[in-house]
Design a protein around this nucleic acid. Structure first.
Lengths: 337, 337
DNA sequence: TCCTTTTAGTTTACCGTTATACCAATAATA
DNA sequence: TATTATTGGTATAACGGTAAACTAAAAGGA
């Protein structure tokens, strides 16, 4: 409530002197005056108006974290946050931003809205974007000079700052593990491999593992669909109905994989004896499943920290050329494969 | 980038005329001039600087959503978001705020920080707080006249705007269901009932159901602990070791309940035959569990909407006296009880 | 003692926007 | 024809803060 001018009046000094005390520029202020002002600041419960400060400095200390997606008109249909992956990531990002002195603004946005509504309007100091982003949007960020860190985006990597996981390697490890277990008819369940992205990279790793082990891929081994628990269960139905027989499945995400296992068991198949399943992410819900899910673990909390650290390097100018960082993965063997 | 002054120069008018066009105060501007300015606004891709605007208007359109808690120094230890309850709630809150023209700022904060760091500093227009909040903090919000909506807080309800779930009724329904299934030795697993809150209310409902069915409560039936999956599993261990035998358990939350079931099964007990289990929340992960979890369903997305709607009523002045709203619950019978 | 430096401030200007008051030219009215 | 309203603007000040330039008095040095 109290502004710097009122404090100045109370302390019988100019507002500039108060500003110097607030900003700890003590060379300009005598011990006496400083003490007096500080006492008044506490008494009046003064806090600076950040709008005024930001207007001057043109910096907001706000970082926008966003997941571009077609915005549903029905919040019941937006199941993104049902996947604990997002929760763990946003938790880590908020934590690390807070530590670095920034504020997190979160918003689901459509591609167009990213620009018009938020980056420019709010003078956010930086942006963290999760998932696929259209190329036009990516280039615009360059023009307006707001640092952007992309997470899990593969297009135009060489021009952007980005964090990705060893997706190809993960797909390879998962498939190789199944092969080592003696499996030979290995299907893959993914979201969509039409565009280069997380799913297609994991698929590439899967294909490499097959190839290196002289297993020829069959088109019928590929299942694409929405990466949800429910869809995983539907896929299981398909797999049982199809004539093609499988002895193993590599599934794009843990959530989907748990759906697959649930579905397989409902059709009387045993996991891993009849069909072994490997997931991807290493979420705690893999342990809720029976059998517990064998999966490719990525450290999501570390991923969030990498993104924030990189963004902070951009903001303080200590990183000038673009950086592409990769998060390692490892196989987490439980019971489903 | 372009400010109102530059637009004014280009259009050869005063900046006030531009401002009037931007704010659609067309009475002050001729059709001609208006068209010219609007064209330039589009060409220059003008967007207003919200800091300047907010500095003038003293309103930010930012709503702070916060979960007060002891902030861990290690993000790996903050498991709040592992519970899909939070994801679904934040999704709904963001959706409804966006629809109403507000921005969501999210932050984990300690009680003290709520005040000093955010509400005053940022001139957030309103606050949504989830969970227990100390009384001192609650009263301070009154002084600074920022509308606040509390979710899942029970202390001083009559003075605040708040949303709670029918927790007592939920506890009653769950316990009654177990009794109807012929169970008589019914334990309860909760977080902590020491203070009045969600957990204690659910406990009250549990006690009421026992009483109405002439079942006398035994102190050994109460288990308190951290509401996580892991703790649920530990509780199961205790339950098996204790001499007291149970034939049913009412568990405070789904996440905890799934842990309990997992633990019980690992000790060779059958669910629901040996011990029936009822959870609370109605999360999708209840279906991942085997057997699928019988639970008390609350519509979390509706809860978020209720909170935002109430806050918006406060902001536009259409709700003057404090409102206490309650979200209904219903029993969702699956297989675990 | 005179000149220079340091200390402890003050004054001014500006960030981008908008509310308010003011004004000039034209149109309407008596 | 003189007066009043209307139209279509402009000028000024203010929101709260900070950077930069300036200044008066005290202290230090030769």
């Amino acid at each position: 409530m109290a502004s710097i001018v009122e404090i100045a009046k109370l302390a019988k000094v100019s507002k500039m002197t108060v500003s110097n005390v607030i900003n700890k520029k003590y060379e300009k202020v005598s011990k006496e005056t400083r003490d007096r002002i500080e006492r008044i600041l506490i008494e009046t419960n003064y806090t600076p108006n950040l709008f005024a400060r930001n207007l001057k400095s043109n910096s907001s200390k706000i970082i926008l974290f966003t997941i571009p997606q077609t915005i549903e008109n029905d919040p019941y249909k937006n199941t993104a946050f049902n996947n604990p992956f997002y929760g763990e990531l946003i938790n880590s990002i908020e934590f690390n931003l807070r530590k670095a002195g920034y504020y997190l603004m979160f918003r689901f946005v459509s591609d167009e809205e990213i620009l018009s509504n938020l980056v420019l309007n709010w003078n956010v100091d930086g942006v963290i974007i999760l998932g696929a982003v259209k190329k036009e949007i990516r280039t615009v960020f360059k023009d307006i000079k707001v640092p952007v860190v992309f997470i899990d985006t593969y297009a135009d990597l060489e021009e952007s700052d980005s964090i990705v996981t060893e997706d190809e390697q993960g797909g390879f490890l998962a498939t190789n593990h199944l092969i080592n277990k003696g499996k030979r008819k290995i299907g893959i369940v993914v979201s969509s491999i039409k565009e280069i992205g997380v799913a297609s990279k994991r698929y590439d790793g899967y294909r490499r593992a097959l190839k290196e082990n002289d297993i020829s891929f069959d088109d019928k081994w590929l299942f694409e669909g929405f990466p949800s628990f429910e869809f995983g269960a539907q896929i299981a139905q398909q797999i049982v109905e199809e004539k093609t027989a499988f002895d193993a499945l590599f599934v794009y995400s843990d959530v989907m994989a748990i759906g697959v296992i649930k579905g397989l068991k409902e059709h009387g198949l045993r996991v891993p004896e009849d069909i072994a399943v490997v997931g991807f992410d290493g979420l705690y819900i893999g342990d809720l499943c029976e059998p517990r899910l064998t999966t490719i673990k990525q450290d999501i909390t570390a991923k969030g920290k990498m993104a924030v650290d990189l963004l902070v390097r951009k903001l303080d100018g200590s990183s000038l050329s673009s950086e592409q960082l990769t998060l390692p993965v490892k196989l987490l063997e439980k019971e489903s494969a």
